[in-house]
C-alpha cells in the first residue's frame, strides 16, 4: 500500500505540493484529478522516489521511500507522464533491459517480457525500433515496462493521454483488472475515467486535496450529478488571478 503523510514540495518560492496526505490500500484504484499544474505529477515523482520531498513521509508497502529508496522502488511500477523511452532500441530490447535492471534473468526474464507484451498488446511491434512507433504504441511500451516485475504498486501518470478512444478503453479495462490485485494510483484530467476505472478519486488543487471520495460520493457532492460541475467548483482556473500564497512554514 501507499501511505503519504504531510508531503510538501517547494520549488524555490513556489509551493507545488502542500502538506498532502492520502493512503491507497491494496485492491484500490485511486484516481488523481486536478487542473494542470496542480501538483499531480510532482506528487507522483516524489512517491516513486525520483524527486526528494521538501518534507513529509512516503511509505510503500511499509518501506520508506526516503530512507530506503532502493527497497521501496522494487515494489513500484511507474509510467511517467511523457512515456519516455530509449528510441534507439527495439520494443523487445527495451523490455529485456527493463527486466534485467529489475533483477530478472534467464527464463524468468523471458516470461516477464512475453507477459508484458501480451498484456499491453505489443506482439505486432515487438521487433520494431521504438522511434518508428506511433504514440499509442509508445505509451503502451512504457506501460509494459512498468508491469515487468509484477509490482505491488502501480503509479501511472496520465496513462490514457494521447490515445484514441479504443486504446483509452483498453487501458481503462487494464487498470481496472490490475487494480483487483494491486495498488494503483493514476492521474488524469478526463473525468469520465473516474467512473470507468477508479474505486476512489481525489481532486487536487494548488497542491492540496480538495475533494476525496468514491465516484458516487463525488457525484452526490456536486449537487447536479456531474463531475465536471464539481471539478469547476473546487478547482481554480489558471485564468483567475492567483490568490495570495499562504506561508506553509
Amino acid at each position: 500500500m501507499i501511505e503519504v503523510e504531510n508531503l510538501t514540495k517547494r520549488f524555490g518560492s513556489k509551493l507545488a505540493v502542500d502538506h498532502l496526505s492520502f493512503t491507497v490500500e491494496k485492491g484500490e484504484v485511486l484516481g488523481f484529478l486536478g487542473p494542470n499544474g496542480a501538483g499531480k505529477s510532482t506528487t507522483m515523482r516524489m512517491v516513486t522516489g525520483f524527486l526528494p520531498p521538501t518534507s513529509g513521509s512516503i511509505r510503500i508497502c511499509g518501506t520508506s521511500v526516503i530512507d530506503d529508496p532502493k527497497a521501496a522502488k522494487r515494489h513500484i511500477g511507474y509510467l511517467p507522464e511523457s512515456a519516455p523511452l530509449y528510441n534507439d532500441m527495439t520494443v523487445t530490447g527495451f523490455l529485456n533491459f527493463g527486466a534485467e535492471i529489475r533483477g530478472l534473468s534467464g527464463a524468468a526474464k523471458k516470461e516477464a517480457v512475453d507477459k508484458a507484451i501480451e498484456t499491453c498488446f505489443l506482439e505486432s511491434v515487438a521487433r520494431q525500433s521504438i522511434d518508428t512507433l506511433s504514440k499509442g504504441y509508445r505509451h503502451r511500451t512504457c506501460l509494459a515496462q512498468s508491469l515487468l516485475h509484477d509490482p505491488e504498486v502501480l503509479i501511472l501518470d496520465e496513462p490514457t493521454d494521447g490515445l484514441d478512444p479504443n486504446q483509452k478503453h483498453e487501458v481503462r479495462q487494464l487498470i481496472r483488472r490490475l487494480g483487483e490485485t494491486k495498488v494503483v494510483l493514476f492521474s488524469t484530467h478526463i473525468l469520465e475515467e473516474v467512473e470507468a476505472a477508479c474505486t476512489r478519486a481525489v481532486i487536487v488543487d494548488r497542491g492540496k486535496i480538495v475533494v476525496d471520495g468514491t465516484p458516487e460520493e463525488l457525484k452526490a457532492k456536486s449537487g447536479t450529478g456531474s463531475l465536471t460541475d464539481l471539478f469547476r467548483q473546487v478547482t481554480t482556473r489558471d485564468t483567475e488571478p492567483e490568490a495570495p500564497e499562504e506561508d506553509a512554514a
Binding site: G49, K70, P80, Y86, I101
Partner: peptide
C-alpha cells in the same frame, strides 16, 4: 532531453 532520466531515477539501482 527525452525524459528517460525519470525511468533511470525510479529503477531500484544506484
Amino acid at each position: 532531453r527525452t525524459g528517460t532520466v525519470e525511468l533511470i531515477g525510479t529503477y531500484p539501482i544506484s
